[in-house]
């Protein structure tokens, strides 16, 4: 048992860094793309909002595995892609291809979450900002985005966990991250449950850390509320009633 842990843990930790890197880069790209798509969806331009809607339906309606295979195996077949040096650089490598698929996939879900957040911003506040003479950019930066992100953060936390879980699919296109190493170790050692337990704990730790980060960000953004709520703890009282 000790031998097994000594063998498996360093290998799986090596995979942990790959998982973390895949998650980080695809979330970074996916969030920005998703924000752009959410703005497109809400714009009055019918072409832009239609594109964003179809994009999100297609990426949310097909399995991530299909998207990864389509990008990795499918796109390399097209001469259009093979002749373009930059595109070929992305497609030809498993890790880069997985990031591409994950980023495009999470962008679709992120756009839906952010759209919900942006739609929840009270019209009066936007109008007030307009009346103050704020430019469109300033209005978005100071009024709409901060309010929308507060609303969207809990749902976005769930999406982050889905991205972490999604990175496991990169193992199907030769990228060795936690799941990839775990599969290899399972077939080498036959200690299937033990390997699963170690890999599972690593994933749970990553997810718990993400949840903690999201929660503390939420608390930071809601810091004005926590003080005013102490007097009238209306939403809390219902929960405590359910407990008793």
């Amino acid at each position: 048992m000790m031998d097994l842990i000594q063998l498996a843990v360093p290998v799986l930790l090596k995979g942990l860094w790959v998982t973390a890197a895949l998650t980080f880069v695809s979330v970074l790209i996916g969030f920005n793309l998703g924000l752009g798509l959410a703005l497109m969806r809400l714009s009055s331009n019918r072409f832009l909002s239609g594109f964003a809607k179809y994009y999100s339906n297609v990426f949310r309606g097909t399995p991530l595995l299909v998207q990864i295979f389509l990008f990795y195996y499918g796109l390399g077949q097209l001469s259009l892609i093979r002749d373009n040096a930059a595109l070929w650089w992305v497609i030809s490598d498993g890790a880069r291809c997985a990031i591409l698929a994950l980023a495009l996939n999470t962008a679709a879900y992120t756009s839906e979450i952010l759209r919900g957040g942006l739609m929840s911003v009270p019209v009066g506040l936007v109008e007030a900002a307009q009346a103050c003479g704020m430019s469109r950019m300033l209005r978005f930066r100071r009024i709409e985005f901060p309010l929308a992100i507060r609303q969207a953060l809990p749902a976005y936390g769930n999406e982050l966990i889905l991205v972490v879980k999604g990175t496991s699919l990169a193992s199907t296109i030769t990228v060795l991250e936690i799941t990839g190493y775990a599969k290899r170790l399972m077939s080498q050692t036959f200690a299937i449950f033990e390997i699963f337990a170690i890999a599972g704990v690593l994933y749970l730790v990553v997810n718990l850390m993400l949840i903690a980060i999201v929660r503390s960000t939420e608390r930071f953004l809601m810091r004005h509320e926590s003080q005013s709520r102490q007097g009238s703890s209306a939403p809390r009282s219902k929960e405590s009633a359910a407990v008793s």
Binding site: K165, S168, T179, F196, G200, L204
Partner: peptide
């Protein structure tokens, strides 16, 4: 629920299949 929702589906499938 927290185990299944926190661990990748693929890993769960490998566990059940290989074991």
């Amino acid at each position: 629920t927290s185990l299944v929702r926190g661990v990748p589906e693929l890993l769960i499938i490998y566990l059940l299949f290989f074991s």
